[in-house]
Amino acid sequence: MDHVIASNITGELLYQVEKQPTLAKTSNPKVKKMLLKPLFSIAIFLLAFTSNAFAQLSPEQQIAKARGITLYNQYKTAAPELRIAAEAGDAEAQFYLAEELRKEKQLMTAEAQKWYEASAAQGDYYSMFQLATAGGDLCAVANKCPSGIKSAGDWLELLIKTAEPRAMKGDAEAMAIMYNAKSDLTWLEKSAEAGYAPAQWLLANRYSEGEGSFLLPWNRKSAEEKWLKASSEGGYPKAMIEYISILYERGDMEGVRHWLEIAAKTGYQDAVSSYGAYLSHTPDKVGYPIDLIKGYALISLLKELDGGGNVQVYVEGKLPLISEKMTPEQIAKANNFAKEWKATHPPLSFYPEKLGL
């Protein structure tokens, strides 16, 4: 990975130098070699920098990164944890830290831009995209880029230059990035066909919104269902919840129960809350055998999301409805079950889209 990124950076540097008037007008190979010599010294420096940037995190830094991403996905303050891994050079942590800083101020701050650029310099698609599209960057404010600062257009060009070769080689995530970069539905369709579950979910939604061409109207609905099912089978919980709605309307309660349980096991807040409510028959809408202990346990886990997504109102209203049917012994068992579930399942998450607002 290191040498690929270094190669990309060096390629970009070569491209920029080749545009310089002195070099462009020089046909003498000896002169050109002399002018290019500093470039290769810089490339060697970049390779060293990149290798350092991709150095493995220490166990403590890795724990901080994982904890930071969990907090970010729970709409909680994640910056202190993410900063530990970001300062150690982790590109993904740098991206999430920049996201939190930008969303906190609802605009591109200088610090957020710094972390996006650090991440983008290591080849991170998502950081490049945000630098290409987020408003309030230095160039937009000044209507001209200061020397050495890339404009939004420069970042978009670099994003495409980085992602397209990988997409052409079959990288499904790169194909999805190309869709975001070019707003060309063909790339999203290719990503879905290549098996990228988030792209399959997004494609189903784009079809639902009227994008794409279908000769027969009912083929659109069939395509939506096809991709929601494929994305669900690929483990994407947002798709599972939407696929459940289709199954519910069809009266396929067995399918509804199956996919709701699977979705809840991913830690997706929407699924955990519904699964717990239906297990405890508050209300009984899909035909689960009543399980007050498991239902209470799952709803009580949502207390962890205090401060994010307005979940506490739901928890405070739902838990009393379940507990009034239970004995103290059952509540004690539910609390133990909740601890076991938390220890053996992914953290609770709202699953925010990586390129969301």
Rank of each mutant, 00 (worst) to 15 (best):
T282S: 11
A230T: 14
Q269K: 06
K238F: 00
L298W: 01
M253C: 07
D291A: 10
L260E: 08
F214R: 04
G276C: 01
I241A: 11
A271G: 12
E254C: 05
W259F: 12
F214S: 09
Y288T: 11
L301N: 01
L228C: 04
G276W: 01
Y248E: 13
G235F: 08
A277W: 00
I244Q: 12
G267Q: 06
S231P: 06
D270I: 01
V286A: 05
A297G: 09
Y236G: 05
G210M: 02
M240D: 10
L215D: 13
G234H: 02
D284F: 01
G267C: 05
L215G: 10
R257A: 04
S245N: 11
S213I: 10
G255K: 09
I262A: 07
E249A: 15
Y248V: 08
N219I: 09
L215V: 11
I246P: 11
E211L: 03
L292N: 00
S280V: 06
L228F: 12
G234S: 10
D252L: 04
G276V: 06
I299Y: 00
M240F: 10
E254I: 10
Y296R: 04
G212H: 02
L247Y: 08
G251H: 10
G235N: 13
G295T: 00
D284N: 14
Q269H: 09
Y236M: 13
V272A: 14
A239P: 02
K285F: 07
I241M: 15
W227N: 05
A297Y: 00
L215Y: 06
L298R: 10
D252Q: 06
G234L: 08
D270C: 03
L247M: 08
M240T: 11
A239I: 11
M253D: 07
D270G: 09
I241K: 09
H258N: 10
T282P: 04
K226I: 06
K221F: 15
E261H: 10
L260C: 06
R250C: 04
K238R: 15
S274V: 08
L215A: 15
A277C: 10
H281T: 15
A271I: 04
V256L: 08
S300M: 01
E249T: 13
K285C: 12
E224K: 14
I293W: 00
L215P: 04
A277L: 03
G255F: 08
E233P: 12
Y288V: 05
D252V: 01
R257L: 11
Y268W: 03
P289D: 14
G267A: 06
I299V: 15
V256A: 07
E233H: 03
Y268R: 14
A277I: 02
N219F: 09
Y243D: 11
M240E: 12
S232A: 15
Q269E: 15
I244S: 06
R220L: 10
A271W: 02
G235C: 13
L260V: 09
S280H: 07
A230W: 03
S245G: 03
S280Y: 14
P283R: 01
H281G: 04
D291Q: 11
I299W: 00
K294R: 15
S280N: 05
A230F: 07
A239E: 04
E249I: 05
L228T: 04
R257G: 02
D252G: 03
I290Y: 11
G210Q: 04
D252K: 01
K265V: 09
A223F: 12
H281K: 09
